[in-house]
């Protein structure tokens, strides 16, 4: 039987997009707790939790050429314990199996958010910048831990070509992450007097980047940037939204209260993203992988609302 590529978190938006791009050329085995709606017939699916013993069977029974790990959850409403266990324990197990069963290529999806927005940030952060996100927002600690786990794995296993991708804010018509949700609000809050440059990337471009990362000669950490950077106000204008400017000293406690009483789904530290810079330099990835985004800036912005 053909060697397979294991894709974790395949039932999510990004996973499905990636599977659709890859299944015609590669044998794909998907692992996810959720069912894969609209699964192409040639994608083999294991509906299970990475933390369970059964996940190891996938590696025992199949010959695996590569693993794409996207099974990382970020839901501000989920308990921190469950978050941490699913993301960190899940990743640890998966990386163990990769080493044990001789997988030669591991691609891990991290995020440019691990650097964290801050007033001290340089305009473009390179891959060696410290991962400071948790210093202002403890809710993202496990995402940083996943990135560092993969990083440690990269150093401990020089024979395995590990790639860690840190894409900027992923947007798409059905994506449900904080930036996409925010950009779908008709009357979004902005912080009065703040208009940071933001970077967005289309979900299809991220899927293409994950596939490009399978190329055997690539290894290491890469920031992945979409069509560039643009002021937040221009994004909102392009989408035809009417922002409500809120003074920042008021916004934080107010949002904290709204979040607590479930009237808003953004935890207050997310406000940092519409106040400060968290932009990255993606030139290393573009050069070494010979990769370019396919969606223009306008396309990428419009993708949020599904045009």
């Amino acid at each position: 039987m053909r060697k397979a590529i294991v894709v974790t978190g395949i039932s999510g938006n990004l996973g499905r997009t990636l599977a659709k791009q890859l299944h015609k050329t590669e044998r794909i085995i998907g692992i996810d707790r959720r069912p894969f709606v609209g699964r192409p017939k040639d994608v083999e699916m294991y509906q299970l939790d990475l933390r369970k013993k059964k996940a190891e069977d996938v590696f025992r029974k199949n010959e695996i050429s590569a693993v794409i790990h996207m099974g990382i959850m970020h839901d501000p409403r989920m308990s921190e314990e469950e978050h941490h266990s699913f993301n960190v324990v899940g990743t640890t197990r998966l990386l163990e199996y990769c080493a044990k069963y001789g997988v030669k290529k591991v691609v891990v999806l991290s995020s440019a958010n691990v650097y964290g927005p801050s007033p001290d940030n340089s305009n473009f952060l390179t891959e060696d910048a410290p991962l400071m996100a948790a210093s202002r927002f403890s809710g993202v600690r496990d995402l940083i831990e996943v990135d560092m786990l993969a990083h440690g794995f990269f150093w401990r296993h020089p024979d395995i070509n590990t790639v860690i991708l840190r894409p900027v804010h992923i947007v798409g018509p059905t994506i449900k992450n904080a930036p996409s949700n925010y950009l779908r609000l008709r009357r979004p809050w902005t912080l009065a007097g703040f208009d940071p440059m933001v970077q967005l990337i289309h979900v299809e471009d991220v899927a293409r980047a994950m596939i490009a990362a399978l190329s055997p000669e690539l290894r290491g950490v890469y920031n992945v940037v979409g069509p560039g950077e643009v002021p937040l106000s221009s994004v909102l204008r392009e989408l035809g939204h009417t922002p409500i400017p809120v003074p920042h000293p008021v916004a934080r406690p107010l949002l904290g209260m709204l979040f607590k009483y479930r009237l808003a789904n953004f935890p207050p530290p997310e406000l940092d993203h519409i106040q400060f810079l968290c932009n990255v330099d993606g030139s290393r990835w573009q050069q070494e992988a010979g990769w370019k985004p396919r969606h223009s800036m306008r396309d990428t912005i419009r993708a949020v609302v599904g045009d």
Partner: peptide
């Protein structure tokens, strides 16, 4: 960058935070 209005004004006229990387 932590000052409202000033931060945006400075960025639009091309003045940026003085980090060595920038």
């Amino acid at each position: 960058p932590s000052l409202p209005y000033v931060s945006t004004f400075m960025a639009r006229i091309g003045q940026i935070v003085g980090t060595p990387e920038n």
